[in-house]
Write a protein that binds this DNA or RNA. Structure first.
Lengths: 310, 310
DNA sequence: CCATACCTCTGATCATAGTCAGAGAATTTC
DNA sequence: GAAATTCTCTGACTATGATCAGAGGTATGG
């Protein structure tokens, strides 16, 4: 159990460990110190599970069904926990007006106070960790954790194929066109988002949404242009997620989808204003081609030949 | 529960969060994904606590007493867990020859195989996390986690006052003189480490050791020079821990100790070969002074006036 | 309007985690 | 060598986490 903190400042260390080793060492040392169980949930006079449920309700109230999915709980178990919180007057449970089989759960004022206390403790714990560090070290720690957080989130993003009119898809596309409208000098006419989505669904097209914690963070689609050519459309990455390689990953994924749909080449158009996107396409092996459509907002056109799969 | 991954690449983010917020956000997202409970302990047909004990024994065999201290377990509980592992032929428990009240615990060959399986799963988990990332992203993640690991460890180092002949103190001092011997052009005569330690214990002196997970990572002492002057001696930081500010923290600590001992000024000598040390002293507000002793290895001499405390 | 599916809750049950008091063996102290 | 201490283990007990089957209310599709 010798500590091997592997100072990153010293590249001459004899045993530069692999990625997996670094992750494992970090897991071990971090969880030991921060408390894997996040002990801040303890000590409020209620068991861990109950506190965790209370916390989750405070983060986002919802139906018992939501909570069950978010916390991965058995319905009977959840019911019992709720009853306990209810009898302590920390939460209110009422039938959902929309579907009276379901029940809506929310915090009472007393519950909100208990939740605030959980928050306070959790903050206290974090404050205690950084307390012995100098300001410069805290900055370094914060930067390192933020970087790790971004990458870990990016690594665990889930990419799912959905219908282009799916609520999650529309939410992502709305963010996409809003951003275009903002960045294009002349603006971008935001019309009906469901228009022109025919080609983006099977059997010849597809649309995917990448979500993190259920929140859409990126999207993109493939539609057929005929002649074994697919076109990548509506590709977008949440601004706060840029720089984490999510775009490249999504692009690779869409290329795979296009290949599965039988396309041998993909094309796409974009606007020179979106500098990050242009750079990414070039990095991903796309080559500039002549204009192949009359999209008034497009200034750059790219194509890439797909390697055959399966 | 909106995700705010705060891309570090974008310094213009409107809501740059404080250190505590970053730590908390990271805690939440990381533990959710990596599994606070380190689920790799599960699924071997034994409960979590048993698996954790098995793992700990595999990392470092020892007496039940050691294990109890390391895992913070009740003696009765530990006894029961051991009996279970013993009945599964995973560990052997035998009386300690040195003190037959104690019992030594070690893995059997079957236990070692089970332990290897735990290791494999844990690695699998880490591999799974980094799998979706590109090589460059993995490097970034590894660097960020290593940096965070170093700083978190540094923040949780425990500084304790011990006798200068304490085993932990001697281990640290041995590493110190070995390093001097290696770095000094003419070598450094390593004599009896307990010699010259009289001044490093109360009531006029002190010696402290900084440990992480029970392993000495830094040390230093204060001895009286008379006339309200204390001298800082034998200050050393483990090579792998340099660059984490542990030296500065230890130095601050020793200044506090010196002040508590009634000294108003501290002096120290060092060798120009130890460039990091010289830089650190200057950063900490030490000013160069004339040679005040005949230490043949010393080339630089520093002093600092202490602010009054209490 | 009937069958079916969905949703929550209750009762029953179980394993695990964890605590406490004290028996009994080994060691140290006086 | 007796007394006090240290150490492990057993028995007794509690709470928590978790699962399963089924009752009974509510919605939906034909």
């Amino acid at each position: 159990m010798a500590p091997r903190p592997s100072a990153p400042a010293d590249p001459d260390l004899p045993d530069v460990p692999g990625h997996v080793e670094v992750v494992r060492r970090f897991n071990r040392s971090y969880t030991q110190r921060i408390g894997v169980l996040d002990d801040s949930f303890l000590g409020l006079g209620m068991p861990l599970g109950t506190a965790r449920l209370l916390y989750e309700i405070g983060v986002q109230a919802g139906t018992t069904r939501d909570l069950r999915a978010r916390l991965q709980l058995d319905s009977g178990y959840l019911s019992r926990l709720l009853r306990r919180l209810e009898s302590d007057a920390l939460v209110s449970v009422e039938p959902d007006p929309d579907d009276r089989r379901r029940r809506r759960v929310d915090l009472t004022p007393a519950g909100r106070r208990a939740w605030d206390e959980l928050e306070r403790r959790s903050g206290e714990r974090a404050r205690h960790l950084v307390a012995p560090l100098t300001e410069r070290q805290r900055d370094r720690l914060a930067a390192a954790l933020a970087e790790a957080d971004l990458l870990v989130r990016a690594a665990t993003v889930e990419i799912e194929q959905v219908d282009p009119t799916d609520p999650a898809a529309l939410a992502a596309v709305r963010a996409y066109v809003d951003e275009l409208d903002e960045r294009f000098p002349g603006g971008f006419a935001v019309g009906d988002l469901t228009a022109g989505t025919e080609g983006l669904r099977p059997p010849d097209g597809a649309f995917v949404v990448a979500t993190s914690d259920g929140v859409p963070v990126a999207c993109g689609g493939v539609q057929p242009l005929g002649g074994g050519v697919g076109e990548i459309k509506r590709m977008w990455v949440h601004p706060q997620w840029r720089g984490a390689g999510l775009g490249s990953r999504l692009l690779r994924h869409l290329e795979g989808v296009a290949a599965d749909l039988g396309h041998t080449t993909v094309r796409l158009d974009t606007n020179g204003t979106l500098t990050e996107a242009v750079a990414m396409y070039e990095r991903a092996g796309y080559r500039a081609v002549d204009r192949y459509n009359d999209n008034p907002h497009a200034t750059h056109f790219f194509a890439k030949r797909l390697r055959r799969t399966g």
